[in-house]
Design a protein around this nucleic acid. Structure first.
Lengths: 196, 196
DNA sequence: GGCTTTACGGACCGGTCGGTAGGCTATATA
DNA sequence: TATATAGCCTACCGACCGGTCCGTAAAGCC
């Protein structure tokens, strides 16, 4: 650690932002390195290849979103925490959305996809909240809810540019309410008659 | 029309597939042209620049999705038609999802975004089904539903690769049901006391 | 038959891509 | 003090990028 020992972490941060904003093919390793005033060779020194940089970014992302769910056994709270996290870290949401679009296009040699533990966790929570669900139904409900949540968080900048700030402020007020209400309706019914 | 007069249309088809699969920065005009055995100069002859090719692709997409909604006044039916269309044309869904992610990053000189009429139409239908909604609430419900639908259609290939065909078949059976049930719950309530 | 237009291909341009080779410097260790 | 190593650089490579220039063959128009 002769010079700046946290360079790898800062490169990961920059790469996370750029991959989220422009996607894998839209980002050059030179532009990531340039963000901290380095050359691309410095980046290659730390990560070897662009692909390994990207995989590292996804690894960290996987850790963050699992942590965001918390250790609650309540799926509504888990989605609540995740919405908070995604709202505060839209880059994370964008990267997830991009992976849903692009994952099958990339080679992904061997390793397990970073979203699998996340989806499995949510599906398990859904099944424990609604034992009347089949596995497929639980995954479907989780997936539909996650899709609505991600699309909303992800399109913020786009819709702000298109509709203007005022409309978007209304959306930012209404949509989280819609999502929370929907989570309750989705997962808190049948078998588990509920309070509030 | 000396040689092949429908070349532009075929180029648009190829470009639609490739942009949907790999996104704007991931597609080279040479690879699009190559799909019909042409060189990139042929493509540039017809469209001038890569950007104009992409805009043409979005124009056609905008026409298709508006047509897919049909002329019904019933938002549940409109979403039903759109789900059918998106299921049969996953490239269209992928392009919309990519635009939601990327639109603000591109310059988009002047012209109106192709999704605006689509979103406006759906929002208007939502408001007429639920006069108790504010504009923001209607847009939020439309957007949440659209997000769930798009994410589902778009992630098909990815999830198939990750979960295997069997799980995905279960999802393909369960998720459309979830979406249809949800559309009814979203838009057919209050003021319009319900049957079914 | 001359002229223009359409539809391409070949050659090439400046620039950028990911990646390699090798060198320099500051620190850590012996 | 000698050596090793981490961190980063300059220089360079072949491949590819979007785009221009120019030629050419076929068809339409007069």
């Amino acid at each position: 650690m002769t010079q700046n020992s946290d360079t790898p972490a800062r490169l990961i941060d920059a790469a996370t932002r750029q991959f989220a904003a422009r996607g894998y093919p839209g980002v050059s390793i030179a532009s990531v390195a340039q963000e901290l005033g380095l050359t691309k060779q410095a980046l290659l020194h730390h990560f070897g290849t662009k692909d390994r940089l990207y995989e590292t970014v996804l690894d960290r992302l996987g850790d963050r979103i699992m942590a965001a769910l918390g250790d609650t056994g309540d799926i509504v709270k888990a989605f609540d925490h995740f919405l908070d996290h995604a709202g505060a870290n839209p880059d994370d949401a964008a990267l997830i959305a991009r992976e849903l679009l692009d994952h099958d296009a990339r080679a992904e040699t061997g390793r397990q996809w970073f979203l699998i533990p996340f989806l499995n966790r949510l599906t398990a929570l859904a099944r424990s909240a609604r034992p009347d669900f089949t596995d497929a139904e639980a995954l479907a409900e989780v997936y539909a809810h996650l899709g609505a949540l991600l699309t909303y968080v992800v399109s913020g900048p786009t819709l702000r540019g298109v509709y203007g700030k005022k409309v978007l402020r209304g959306l930012d007020e209404a949509l989280p309410k819609v999502l929370r209400k929907q989570a309750k309706r989705r997962f808190l019914a049948k078998k588990t008659a509920r309070k509030v």
